[in-house]
Amino acid sequence: MRIEVLNLKKYFGDTRAVDDISFSFAAGEVVGFVGPNGAGKTTTMRVLATLEEPTEGDALVDGVSVVQEPERARRLVGYVPDALPTHRDISVHDYLDFFARAYGIKGAKRREVIESIEEFTNLTGIRGKMLIALSKGMKQRVSLARALLHDPPVLIMDEPAAGLDPRARVELRELLRELAGQGKAILISSHILTELAEICSGAVIIEQGKLRMAGTMNQLFTQSVPRRRVLIRAAGGLDEMLRDLLQTPGVEEAHIAGNEIAVDINGEEDACADVLTALVSRGYRIIEFKHQRAGLEDIFMRVTTGEVQ
């Protein structure tokens, strides 16, 4: 199972909402879809969900084209939009029952599927409530439950954590981890990058409809931040060590931060090991030498320009 976005373009009049982007990801991966507002995330996701036809290009879900065979692609994709269901005249259970019927799930199997999904998304206790009466977190669960009814191998989630309280966000994260564990490929967009970094195995960054960067988290960190930052804690002599560090080959920048020295080293892990060896050989007593990873936020700020269309 592989999801491939191929040279996708979507224009609305003169506005290029999505401008020739390509990326791919596989089953079991959780991919963060990141970009500023108006970057084209929702449009791309709507194309993947067969709700929008691209101006050019295509997207393949397990080899099935969302343009040429949207009916087949729909069986493979579950879509959680950024807006939530707010009907005042239908209950949670009836709503899920309708979508299960719409996906062609019949008889006893339909009852079993709905019950297991309600249990999985913790909706069992509120199945009789009208949708309008639910909290945002609960509506989000209903939306997720609806997308899972036909057991799709691919989940497309547009801002699922927006507006949720901390507890609901943690619970959503747990659900996503479990779904990824089940082998589902998940594409998730969010502005809460710290949370995305925790659950995502990869990320796609777009801006103004153009792809800025895509890859696994490690690839992104390496690509966007060629230098490595390490934090060094030593027993005494910080000033003297700082002077020495600044003269050490491979060290680009260093400064004292509290009781530690933050050092930017140009190179891979070998370069870090060389710096540590040099310090120890000069007689410094190192208590802690740790790699400080750049966050998704850092990467995002580095690769995007902040311009809007």
Partner: peptide, 10 residues
Amino acid sequence: NVDLLFITTI
């Protein structure tokens, strides 16, 4: 709309 009737297989 979020009913998304049109992404089901109906």
